[in-house]
């Protein structure tokens, strides 16, 4: 009797699920499952998550499901869950590059199309439709080319790096390292502050105390650039558009762009968190991709040409 009841219950459950599934399909909304890092990770991620929610909204004909985790295994479970639920598209920004083969194969079997955004995964290209990513090396090149276009007599650079080994650090360091190697620019100091503002300040302070001359600060994110500028201010060294030292940052936080607008910094490189529209266009067939890897267009802002409009459009945070 007990067995019969449980069988009946399971049957009921299955039937109700089928109906639920049908109900979802009938509404006509495109079901999108997003596996991402949590918005608390950074200002970048916060903007990224907001952008996803804005583009994949009900008004645009989507039904959005999200899962956030910094841990790869939790992300894998969430992706598994989305596949079981039966989403139409799976969007992934993976915590780690490995371990995704099985899940992506299952997605393919279930006919779910996979898009990667922000971060690449080590799997065969056939397992996903497209990957919309930033090219960190290009960000570095854009910034260094801008610096070269300033035509300084000498380049004495303080280079403050992000957490060693991170994508952003490797990409943004590469282009500058090439200049150091060619002798076009002089390396005054090259230190990692692991994205820590206070550490960046200490690094610049130690250079000032040593009495060495420098005229460029190349910080691999905005926070560290702010730390560096604090050290300059305390020692009365001028910086920015009319100053002695050129200040460069990355990420385009709104507060950082405002520093540019005020002429206190010179350059800020963008790392665009806005991939959602590109993916949405691909899903709806408004655009097609010739290659699986799509590089997200990114800008670099010069304090002399920056406008308030740019800050409103491209700035992160408040």
């Amino acid at each position: 009797m007990k067995k019969l009841t449980s069988l009946l219950l399971v049957g009921l459950l299955a039937v109700s699920m089928v109906f639920a599934g049908c109900g979802g399909k009938k509404s006509g909304a495109i079901k999108v499952g997003v596996v991402n890092n949590p918005p608390s990770e950074s200002g970048y991620r916060e903007a990224n998550v907001k952008d996803m929610e804005k583009v994949f909204s009900a008004e645009n004909g989507y039904e959005l499901k999200t899962a956030y985790s910094l841990k790869n295994d939790e992300q894998l479970q969430a992706a598994q869950g989305f596949i079981t639920e039966g989403v139409d598209y799976l969007l992934i920004s993976a915590a780690e590059t490995t371990g995704w083969d099985e899940v992506l194969k299952k997605a393919k079997e279930a006919g779910i199309k996979v898009y990667l955004f922000d971060r690449m995964i080590d799997v065969d290209e056939s397992l996903y439709e497209a990957a919309v990513v930033s090219d960190m090396a290009k960000e570095g090149e854009t910034a260094v080319n801008w610096l070269l276009s300033q035509n300084l007599d000498t380049y004495n650079v303080i280079h403050i790096q992000g957490a060693m080994g991170s994508d952003a650090q490797i990409g943004r360091t590469g282009a500058l390292d090439a200049q150091f190697a060619s002798g076009k620019m002089n390396k005054v100091v090259q230190q990692t502050a692991t994205w820590d503002e206070a550490e960046a300040k200490k690094i610049v302070e130690s250079v000032i105390n040593s009495g060495e001359d420098f005229n460029v600060i190349y910080a691999e994110n905005d926070g560290m650039a702010k730390g560096a500028v604090a050290a300059l201010d305390e020692n009365g060294i001028t910086h920015g558009v009319d100053g002695k030292v050129i200040v460069m940052g990355f990420d385009c936080n709104k507060w950082a762009l405002r520093e540019l607008l005020a002429g206190k910094w010179n350059y800020d490189g963008q790392c665009s968190p806005f991939q959602a529209q590109i993916i949405s266009d691909l899903i709806q067939g408004k655009s097609t991709n010739s290659s699986k890897k799509i590089i997200n267009e990114e800008k670099g802002f010069d304090a002399k040409t920056l406008t308030q409009g740019d800050i409103d459009t491209y700035g992160l945070g408040e």
């Binding site: 918005p39 608390s40 950074s42 200002g43 991620r45 916060e46 905005d222 926070g223 702010k226 936080n253 507060w255 992160l316 945070g317 408040e318």
Partner: peptide, 10 residues
């Protein structure tokens, strides 16, 4: 993080 929400307020 909950107190200020994400980005680095200045």
């Amino acid at each position: 993080y909950w107190i200020n929400g994400g980005a680095t307020p200045t």
